[in-house]
Design a binder for these strands. Structure first.
Length: 201
DNA sequence: GGGTTGATGTTC
DNA sequence: AACATCAACCCG
């Protein structure tokens, strides 16, 4: 397939990559959607990043290639899908938080048990469920030759750029002030609109 | 619309 | 014990 992101894309500053992922089309085993919301987590100096508390996350960063999928279970029920950034000025993990559904919508509706397209991928737990992503997909390469069939990250067409805004991250208590969430401004498929994140209790 | 609550399991 | 969530339920 042409126009796929290469490892080089993920060998840059994690904040730059998180911003640049807005507008990229994520394909996952036949389903697809445009990334409209991301969050950056920095390997160094970010208390909210898994690497701050989990040796297994640091091991993942050490051993996996740029662009690898970091998948984990949150709140005991929801799989969350992240992409690895490394070998650039600032390593990190990028949480994919929302997609605008494009392909395989019937399959997504079935997996989600929802009919409205806006309810399919407007949150990190929702999109993993819609795409059928589980812990079995932890470590999946998303760049290069060993990417699974029907899977990958496709560059947006020239001239289809989104208006990207930055905001605080959702649902964290540590390092909560960093404006490291990126959104396609005004897009109805985001999880929380710009400026609407509640302060942690 | 907005706020609250309960379900659930992996990690350290 | 904490936790990068969601849907169902209340209230208005």
């Amino acid at each position: 397939m042409f126009f796929m992101l290469t490892a080089k894309f993920f060998q840059r500053d994690v904040l730059i990559v998180a911003r640049d992922l807005i507008g990229v089309e994520l394909h996952w085993r036949g389903c697809s959607g445009i990334i409209v919301e991301t969050e950056a987590y920095a390997v160094e100096g970010d208390e909210a990043c898994h690497t701050a508390s989990r040796p297994s996350a640091r091991e993942f960063v050490r051993t996996q290639p740029p662009g690898a999928a970091y998948v984990y279970l949150n709140y005991g029920m929801y799989w969350l899908f992240n992409l690895l950034v490394k070998d650039g000025p600032r390593d990190g993990l990028i949480l994919i938080r929302a997609l605008e559904p494009v392909g395989g919508i019937a399959k997504m509706k079935r997996r989600r048990g929802k009919e409205r397209v806006k309810d399919l991928c407007s949150g990190p737990g929702k999109l993993a469920m819609a795409l059928g992503i589980t812990g079995a997909d932890h470590g999946t390469p998303m760049c290069g030759r060993s990417v699974p069939v029907g899977t990958g990250l496709r560059l947006p067409r020239a001239g289809s750029s989104h208006n990207v805004s930055a905001d605080v991250r959702v649902g964290i208590s540590k390092a909560a002030k960093h404006p490291w969430r990126f959104l396609a401004h005004g897009n109805p498929h985001v999880s929380v609109p710009h400026g609407k994140v509640k302060s942690p209790r």
